[in-house]
Amino acid sequence: MIRKLLLLLMLGALASCQGPLPLMHFPDGRAPLNEIFSFEIELVDGPAENVSVDADMPSHGHGMVTEPVVTKIDATHYQVDGMMLHMPGYWEIYVEVTRDNESERFMLPLTLEAWE
């Protein structure tokens, strides 16, 4: 279970849609480097049919070495397990939310440093 939520990060600085943005709750307020971690997604604009998560390092041309699993907690909260951002550098975390057979994709940019 995710530890106490210390920081809420608003998604969607570069979101591909205009809808209300989901929140990501990271354990300890940050995504760790090179460790499997879990986080929680909160859909602030109501329930969805499906939520999926992925992440890439665009400048490296690759994504994660794990495949995260998304589990519904309740109508507006989802648990994401199996995340691992294995290299330092610039990452983009993608959250895709499907409602009424239409998907919206949100992106969270973040940079991990080798000394974190």
């Binding site: 994504g63 794990t66 995260p68």
Partner: peptide
Amino acid sequence: GQMLYMISN
């Protein structure tokens, strides 16, 4: 944990 989530691509 790593056994559960590891992937090939």
